[in-house]
């Protein structure tokens, strides 16, 4: 079936009470009409399943679905702003770090703490001297007995000597294995210690960064909280969709801008305090992010306190003593 464009021109007053697509096969128009409610998850369960199944078979609806999901996601921003509890982040980072450390041994393929001890070689390896062939009976029975006793004694001594050597060799092997294993563990522990040291350094750096950011933010928020004046800036022809707000509190201000395109490296946005008479005074350079937003903390000396307007222009990197480029925002 050829797919149609989304019908946006429905009669707003049309209240189709009999429209119940869950009980029969859905048409393309049915699904397009149900999609806005589908993305909110507000259809009945059988309708949700039916629409989901239909979408999986009609790739042409995927783009429309993504558009509506993006719209739905924006509703999250309608939730009232609340204080963000700092302890959640602390707990979460601790949990994540513990997880990271727990994964290290597996990643490093650590050996078992001690390998199982080898059993000392047992008697099967002991060589038993062959039994002497029977001799003919001797006439001198005494000397025969003596030789036999001496032979047995020598054989027993050799047996004990061989047994002891085998025993010692087994022990030496065992100690060598343990030594190698211990050395490997030591190396692994040293690597872990080094990693923990690195993590510690990173965390210390993060703490420093956060303290610095917190100090800067406190200043900005104080300005926002005690702002006595709010000046709106509107986009000029050079940036018609751009806008901004300049909050002023005593001798400080915070400029917030929106929908300004990021500039190439050789250019910058520069903020100006414009007195009723005389030349505009440079008030700072503002960095605009990829999200087309930016903010700037401005100190307002006494002599600049009575400005009549404010504006933002595009200037060469590093700024200019007086406006030279296009003005993009003006109050």
């Amino acid at each position: 079936m050829p797919e149609k464009q989304t019908p946006y021109d429905h009669d707003p007053d049309n209240q189709d009470q009999n429209h119940n697509p869950s009980n029969h096969s859905l048409s393309y128009e049915d699904v397009v009409e149900l999609l806005p409610v589908f993305v909110l998850g507000a259809l009945e369960p059988d309708e949700m399943l039916a629409v989901d199944s239909y979408i999986s078979q009609h790739q042409g609806l995927i783009e429309r679905l993504a558009q509506l999901e993006a719209t739905t996601a924006q509703l999250a921003y309608a939730a009232p702003p609340l204080p963000l509890p700092g302890h959640v982040k602390t707990q979460l980072m601790q949990r994540v770090q513990a997880d990271l450390v727990a994964q290290q041994p597996a990643a490093l393929n650590l050996p078992a703490v001690f390998p199982p001890r080898r059993k000392i070689a047992a008697s099967p390896s002991v060589v038993v001297p062959p039994t002497a062939p029977p001799r003919k009976p001797q006439t001198h029975w005494f000397s025969t007995v003596t030789r036999t006793l001496i032979g047995v004694g020598v054989a027993a001594a050799m047996f004990l000597l061989v047994f002891r050597m085998i025993q010692l060799r087994g022990l030496a092997n065992q100690l060598a294995t343990q030594l190698a294993s211990t050395q490997q563990q030591l190396t692994t522990l040293q690597a872990q210690n080094s990693q923990l040291h690195t993590i510690n350094q990173t965390l210390e750096q993060q703490l420093q960064d956060q303290n610095t950011q917190m100090a800067a933010l406190k200043t900005n928020l104080n300005t926002l909280a005690y702002a006595s004046q709010m000046i709106e800036l509107k986009g000029t022809d050079a940036a018609p969709t751009a806008n901004g707000v300049f909050y002023v509190a005593n001798h400080a201000g915070v400029l917030m801008v929106h929908d300004l395109p990021p500039l190439p490296k050789n250019q910058t946005y520069q903020f100006w305090l414009i007195p009723a008479e005389g030349a505009p005074l440079p008030a700072g350079l503002i960095h605009v992010t990829e999200s087309k937003m930016g903010s700037l903390m401005v100190n307002i000396p006494d002599q600049n306190g009575n400005f009549a307007k404010v504006g933002l222009s595009i200037e060469p990197s590093g700024g200019s003593p007086a406006p030279t480029g296009s003005i993009v925002l003006i109050s």
């Binding site: 921003y77 009232p80 609340l82 204080p83 963000l84 917190m214 800067a216 933010l217 928020l221």
Partner: peptide
């Protein structure tokens, strides 16, 4: 309501505030 923000950069505060305003 009277918003209180975390210690993130002021840029983030601005972005959120603008996005909330838009929605």
């Amino acid at each position: 309501q009277s918003p209180t923000y975390s210690y993130e950069g002021a840029e983030k505060v601005v972005e959120q505030r603008l996005q909330q305003q838009q929605v």
